[in-house]
């Protein structure tokens, strides 16, 4: 089972009486435990595709299955719970909660997933150490650099041990060196935690690290590059189904 499958998915934006097709006839499987990049120029539909995969937007046609479940027909509350347990998000502008410290930002998704206090502490501590921000645990986002904020965002996305992490242009607001560090960190975390990462990016550094690259233009897939065959032994069976302890 693929962590993400899209079949004939289409999305149209309506600006008054004008209909602007954002995605047309997208059929796609994201492989399990790989680093997938959706690549394309601005306005090609990368973010829209990522939003549909992330269950924060709905298609006008076709079917989307995430972790084996058809998500477009889920009621809103069920979909929210589904996202909280199965999907992590990393945003271009980091999107940390400004009133929460680094520790609390990472902890927040665990609250949503109803993970017990002891397990929350253990996981947040481990993630802070993994992203190298142990010493910054009590800092608010405003007290962190861009790179540090994105590290917190990565830790937050991985907090609930989701099967799928989506990142929309995660290095766009970072300088090249910091961007490279962030990519390296995500790559390491992806391997360590055996998570499927899906990026939208046209950053060559990201492409270089990708296992799979999906090229998109004018809302259509124009090419797929399977850069590396993923060793079967690396892939943990049922990664998407393995969730954290819940209180």
């Amino acid at each position: 089972m693929h962590p993400v499958s899209l079949c004939n998915v289409g999305k149209v934006y309506r600006l008054g009486a004008v209909e602007v097709p954002a995605l047309s006839d997208i059929t796609l499987d994201i492989r399990r435990g790989v680093f997938t990049v959706i690549s394309g120029p601005s306005g090609s539909g990368k973010t829209t595709l990522l939003n549909l995969i992330g269950c924060i937007d709905t298609p006008d046609q076709g079917e989307i299955r995430v972790a084996g479940r058809a998500v477009q027909s889920m009621p809103d509350d069920e979909l929210s719970d589904f996202r909280a347990r199965h999907i992590g998000f990393i945003f271009q502008s980091f999107n940390l909660i400004p009133v929460l410290s680094a520790y609390e930002n990472i902890e927040y998704p665990l609250h949503l997933a109803k993970v017990g206090a002891a397990e929350r502490r253990r996981r947040v501590q481990a993630l802070l150490e993994a992203v190298g921000l142990e010493s910054r645990r009590n800092n608010l986002p405003a007290q962190l650099s861009g790179g540090q904020r994105q590290r917190v965002a990565i830790a937050r996305a991985l907090a609930t041990a989701p099967g799928l992490v989506l990142a929309d242009e995660p290095t766009a607001n970072l300088d090249s060196q910091t961007g490279a560090e962030i990519i390296a960190l995500m790559r390491r975390m992806q391997r360590e935690q055996d998570v499927s990462f899906v990026f939208s990016s046209h950053d060559p550094q990201v492409h270089a690290e990708a296992d799979d690259v999906i090229f998109i233009r004018d809302g259509r897939i124009v090419g797929v590059e399977l850069k590396r065959e993923v060793a079967r032994e690396v892939v943990r069976e049922g990664a998407l189904e393995v969730q954290g302890e819940r209180s």
Partner: peptide, 16 residues
């Protein structure tokens, strides 16, 4: 607004 979008994306329900 963006914060609300982020919270919702992370899985906070409308009622939340």
């Amino acid at each position: 607004t963006a914060e609300i979008g982020t919270l919702r994306a992370m899985g906070l329900r409308r009622s939340g």
